[in-house]
Design a protein around this nucleic acid. Structure first.
Length: 852
RNA sequence: GCCCAGGUGGCGGAAUGGCAGACGCAAGGGACUUAAAAUCCCUCGACCGCAAGGUCGUGCGGGUUCGACUCCCGCCCUGGGCACCA
């Protein structure tokens, strides 16, 4: 029903997305619309997207992150916020170094090339950033400060070196942090089967922050529950007791290095049922315990066999193997002498590496005791007191009553736990303790492409930190990459040989570099003073702008990056560098984009190896960036996974084309209707209804964007509004108030659309006679008067089933509504001959008559 | 085993305890066109019925309620996190 008059230039009638997209990208850049002056923090809104690793090119799956972030930034700007959206590059990392080994291209060259490509891609998507704050973690002006922060942590004892059993990735030729090993024992990055090796490595003492990291999760109201739950699981707090078991001296008079063996238990209430103790095979000093005893050979064999097992074999539930040591310990509660065993199911890294075994009340101990015919004793009775060793077929692990445990007998076991821990403390052989699963963060990597650890080894002075004035410790560029994967720093004399900063004698530089997760643990502070070469962070500015108001990124960083960044923030807080304890107030984790593989028809995350990658370039060429953006946001709830569907992209394009034509064809008289007012009392019914629909839409879209970012329903609402517009005839021939309605509707559609499809919105905004940029325009406001209805449609139900509907004055009272409902012929058909038991009236909505 | 999500048409997905399936995709039919593209109109959960209309339907089984996709209890399934963690 749209008038078909064609505009002056027929060309532009066909939504010239290519020209307008190039035009507006240039305009935003020239006008510096995303440059933010951080000296003014009134109404600040720090909108941050996880900075990408410059892997080469971005696909539409990556795009979701940036498109969501850009839509949020644009929306908040229109809501009057002073929005800061910086962007940078997590630019150190193994892929670039591995590529260098293959192709000979230096990692810095390939990385900077990739950055240039990806920057172009972000621009082509229409995403705006404050590029003056760009940080690139592989450049000395950034990693200088990463190294400086390392030194600060080192001074505080939060960075330390120790010999430990660590995860070794044989493919990437480096050690890894626990967080970077998947549950199946393979490396998160390379996929290699991780090996355990005893090596001397650098750690950050994240465990010192375990409790704070756990406690402060509760303050993070703006974080998804699942992310908080994952971090809670990972930290793995458990309360228990540490009990010292005296070691029974050897018969042959040979002295031991220790006279007690401590163990950690969460079930000290079961200790009267403890019938033996088990040590981890790697337990330090185990060999001296058994030296010269008849059991020595079997113990050595056992340890050797257990040592050959891989991490997965050791940590997979299943068969438990062990061996008797020939030694005994004493249970300090009942003074009973019990045998000391070694078992491969006991982990050195957890607790004390020793377990008090209570087969009657622990499923693992039950299995072990049965296998090796060890004694079993009940020390917790079930509430009915019917437990009997003769009839038990599995360990009783539930709560009950303590038995055979004078002076604790007959106590409910939960009450016995604190009492027994207190008793141990008074007696001096134990105490209540809290144990965490979280391990310290292993940060050294035996690779080249990372920030060098600023430490020097001197034969006389030992470990010496590089003086601050000598930072950055620069990565040498003249290096040779060997296929073995060995770090070129290890055989780079100029890099390694250095005088000791303390005594001046020849010394050796640390050749390990830092985990790239260190670089990304503090970049959000650096954005605020990215070009400052005098200090790592600008404390005053951080006070103003931190925390980040909205952080947006992938769920895959739920534990890794997000916990490391929280740890760094707390450590920097303790150093007085910043005054916020949590970096990210609101966290939004968008779901992955998947696509069906052409090979096997399964859904996979987009990746080159699966061959299901969709590049944005061809789509932008064919449909424009606005279409790709609109489709990406419309695909489904942004926090959920979504399957990419090439066909549906066209639907988004059709919609934009429709809006383009509607506005463009009528632009002349729409501009002329600039000052016309939509007088409510002068509007014919259809225009009045459209005007109501418009304001309902504004209300709903605004609600959808606040908080939960329901872009999909917001866009659906714009589509509905356009559909409603289709049902009326829009032309210049209408009276002024009606023209005003059409103008306001189309203008609002453009405004409401602008965070999602900003180029077309800018162009149409201008076509409607407004000055650019739409970013400076105000988000539409709801006109409460427009929402008013004189009449409402009411649903009529009989026994909960819809039987009809009637129009009622909005002011009708309950009685009138009930009356009208009973009089309705449809309703009468269903209540005829029945007794009406109850009538429910929901004002403005429905009537339900219960009849039977 | 423990802890989180989730299960709705052919598909993606909508629904403050109040009309289940908004919006879009796909499909089918039609209009315009020499033709195509583009655009527009109609149909589109299942079953019964010529129709009016009716019955069933949100993983399964119960419950609360005038009324349940929504709340409660018990299951099943899918995805994710943790797990020989003492």
């Amino acid at each position: 029903m749209w008038s078909t008059s064609v505009g002056a230039d027929g060309m532009k009638e066909h939504y010239p997305f290519k020209t307008i997209e190039a035009k507006w990208q240039q305009y935003w850049e020239d006008q510096g619309l995303f440059a933010t002056d951080v000296t003014d923090a009134r109404d600040k809104y720090y909108c941050l997207m996880m900075f990408p690793y410059p892997s080469g090119t971005l696909h539409v799956g990556h795009g979701r992150n940036y498109i969501i972030g850009d839509a949020v930034a644009r929306y908040k700007k229109m809501r009057g916020k002073r929005v800061l959206t910086p962007m940078g590059w997590d630019a150190f990392g193994l892929p670039a170094e591995n590529a260098a080994i293959k192709t000979g291209t230096h990692p810095r060259t390939s990385t900077l090339n990739n950055i240039a490509t990806m920057k172009k891609q972000l621009r082509a998507w229409g995403c705006g950033y404050d590029w003056a704050r760009e940080v690139t973690s592989c450049e000395p002006d950034y990693y200088k400060w990463t190294q400086w922060l390392f030194l600060k942590l080192y001074e505080r004892g939060l960075a330390y070196k120790k010999e430990a059993a660590v995860n070794w990735d044989p493919v990437d030729q480096t050690v890894l942090a626990n967080e970077q090993v998947l549950p199946d024992g393979t490396a998160e990055r390379s996929g290699a089967r991780v090996e355990k090796k005893m090596l001397s490595q650098w750690f950050f003492k994240i465990t010192a922050y375990a409790q704070r990291l756990l406690d402060d999760l509760e303050t993070l109201d703006g974080w998804p529950e699942r992310v908080k739950a994952m971090q809670e699981n990972w930290i793995g707090r458990s309360e228990g007791a540490r009990i010292e078991f005296p070691l029974v001296p050897r018969n042959d008079g040979v002295a031991d290095e220790t006279d007690t063996i401590p163990c950690f238990t969460t079930r000290v209430d079961t200790i009267y049922g403890c019938t033996y103790m088990v040590l981890a095979p790697e337990y330090p000093g185990i060999e001296t315990f058994v030296a010269g005893l008849p059991e020595e050979d079997s113990v050595r064999d056992f340890i050797a066999t257990a040592g050959r097992l891989s991490a997965i074999e050791r940590t997979t539930e299943g068969d438990k193997n062990g061996v008797f040591t020939g030694r005994y310990v004493v249970n300090p509660f009942n003074h009973e002498t019990i045998p000391l065993w070694i078992g491969d199911y006991v982990l050195l890294e957890y607790g004390t590496g020793a377990v008090m075994a209570v087969p009657a009340h622990d499923t693992r101990d039950w299995a072990f005791a049965h296998k090796y015919d060890l004694p079993i004793r009940i020390s917790i009775q079930n509430p009915d007191r019917t437990l009997d060793l003769a009839t038990m077929t599995e360990a009783y692990v539930d709560d009950g009553v303590v038995v055979d445990a004078i002076p604790f007998s007959n106590l409910p076991n939960r009450e016995a736990i604190p009492k027994m821990a207190a008793y141990a403390e008074v007696q001096g052989f134990g105490k209540a303790v809290v144990q965490y699963r979280l391990r310290d963060w292993l940060i050294s990597r035996q690779r080249y492409w990372g920030a060098p650890i600023p430490i020097i080894y001197c034969d006389d002075c030992g470990m010496v930190p590089v003086p601050e004035a000598d930072l950055p410790v620069k990565l040498p560029m003249d290096v040779e990459f060997k296929p073995s994967g060995e770090s070129p720093l290890k055989r780079h004399p100029d890099f390694q040989q250095v005088p000791c900063p303390r005594c001046g004698k020849p010394a050796r530089r640390e050749s390990d570099t830092m985990d790239t997760f260190v670089d990304s643990s503090w970049y959000f502070f650096r954005y605020l003073s990215a070009r400052d070469d005098a200090q790592a962070v600008d404390t005053a500015c951080c006070d103003q702008w931190m925390p980040v108001d909205q952080y947006i990124g992938g769920i895959e960083h739920a534990i890794l990056h997000l916990m490391y960044a929280r740890f760094f923030t707390k450590a920097m807080y303790d150093l007085g560098l910043v005054h916020c304890e949590e970096p990210f107030a609101q966290l939004f984790t968008q779901g992955m984009i998947t696509k069906r593989s052409e090979q096997d028809g399964q859904l996979y995350k987009m990746s080159k190896s699966k061959g299901n990658v969709v590049s944005p370039e061809a789509l932008i060429e064919a449909f424009g960036a606005d279409t790709v953006r609109l489709y990406t946001l419309f695909i489904g709830p942004p926090e959920k996974e979504a399957e990419w569907n090439d066909d549906a992209v066209e639907g988004a394009h059709r919609f934009l084309r429709r809006i383009w034509r509607r506005v463009y064809l009528h632009r002349d008289w729409l501009v002329a209707a600039r000052d016309a007012q939509p007088m409510l009392d002068q509007l014919p019914a259809d225009a009045r209804a459209l005007y109501r629909k418009l304001h309902e839409s504004i209300q709903r879209i605004t609600r959808d964007l606040e908080g939960a970012f329901h872009f999909n329903t917001a866009i659906a609402q714009i589509m509905e509004l356009m559909n409603a517009l289709d049902d009326v005839e829009v032309s210049a021939d209408h009276p002024e108030p009606v023209r005003a309605v059409y103008r306001e509707t189309l203008e609002s559609v453009v405004l409401l659309l602008s965070p999602f499809a900003p180029h077309i919105a800018e162009e149409l905004w201008q076509e409607l006679g407004n000055p650019p940029s739409i970013l400076n325009a105000e988000w539409p406001r709801v006109n409460e008067a427009a929402l008013h209805r004189d009449e409402v449609e009411m649903v009529l139900q009989v026994n909960g089933k819809v039987r009809g509907r009637i129009m009622m004055p909005a002011t009708a009272d309950q009685h009138a509504v009930e009356e009208a409902a009973r009089d309705n012929p449809q309703v009468q058909k269903w209540i005829a001959g029945k007794t009406i038991r109850k009538v429910i009236v929901v004002p403005g909505k429905l009537v339900n008559i219960a009849a039977g």
